[in-house]
Design a binder for these strands. Structure first.
Lengths: 173, 173
DNA sequence: ACAAACTATTTTAGACTTAAAACATTGATA
DNA sequence: TATCAATGTTTTAAGTCTAAAATAGTTTGT
């Protein structure tokens, strides 16, 4: 029947022969995938929406003034083109509306409609509850440590990415 | 020109009002997405392959005897249908080959061809190097802590998933 | 003022992905 | 042994995603 993605490993075989950084990366990926798949499943089952829809609604919900397409795609960490088609669908469903910025005709401002805000309002508490459930077996102290470590990790990665970006930029000055 | 996904946040605005479990989840997701996007970019640029191709080759490379389609999709954490189309493409390129298991005609065993093994052999060291680069700014001690904490986290999540699976199963005994 | 460079968004082509249904084979059981 | 549930894989439909090219509006240097 093949309803859902297999709840399995991915890193197992890497175990012994690999370096610690690789192992950290694979575990990170596993955790992330496990949670994401379950949230996706529940959003569909309980609310009939996809994960990208929920993500977009969530970003827009906390910006009552709306967001430009570029801002939105940056926050969702997807390409502009992807954001365009996603917002197209959400607009068709009446969850969001687009308006051209008067000061700069290039930019499109996207806002939640009343319908979109209401829909998200129903999903939001459930989503929080699900995350809490999934992380419930992890000790508070461990969560605190993870919170701090992941913040640093994120900063380090961002730094490394900037470095490589600068390096490849300086090839043609 | 819009070459790559925007290297940005996703969690920023969640900051203060949310619970620690939500914040851990969002940071986890950010880290995972940042690394994944960069690896995807480099695989395309340096080797002209997609990330799913690399992942599939990697899983097959460490199983000289091959894997069944189900095993493969479990390891890649994707649906069976997804694995089918992925392997179709890899087979068309000559990187893998399928063979029907004699003992059970339903199962398809997938193996790397020589070409596939060679291709992966070129990518593997580069991939390791990239991961090391991206995590280079994080202290070894922190990586060790993350390794342990993420192992626990993964176990906890898996446990929580099993619980909900069992619960929904027991509705119809 | 005008061309060139730049920015914001959309379009396009193709690959990836999920969920559900369909198909095929196996194994158990009446 | 004929049926039927279970298992492994593929197919299908719709949506998601990326990278690159195209479009359209804005700014800058002269």
């Amino acid at each position: 029947m093949n309803i859902s993605p297999p709840p399995q490993d991915y890193e197992a075989a890497a175990a012994q022969d690999d370096r610690i950084d690789l192992r950290v990366w694979l575990r990170l990926l596993s955790c992330s995938n496990l949670i994401e798949a379950e949230i996706r499943r529940r959003l569909r089952r309980e609310f009939g929406v996809t994960l990208p829809w929920f993500d977009a609604l969530a970003q827009l919900d906390r910006e009552p003034g709306g967001l430009t397409m570029s801002d939105l795609s940056r926050r969702l960490m997807v390409t502009n083109g992807n954001a365009t088609s996603l917002i197209d669908r959400l607009e068709r469903e009446g969850h969001v509306e687009r308006s051209t910025e008067p000061t700069d005709q290039r930019v499109q401002r996207v806002r939640l409609t009343r319908k979109g805000r209401t829909a998200f309002g129903r999903m939001h508490p459930a989503h929080r509850r699900w995350i809490s459930e999934l992380l419930a077996d992890t000790k508070q102290a461990d969560l605190k440590r993870l919170q701090a470590l992941l913040a640093n990790l994120k900063g380090s990665i961002a730094g490394a990415l900037e470095d490589t970006a600068l390096k490849s930029e300086s090839r043609s000055p």
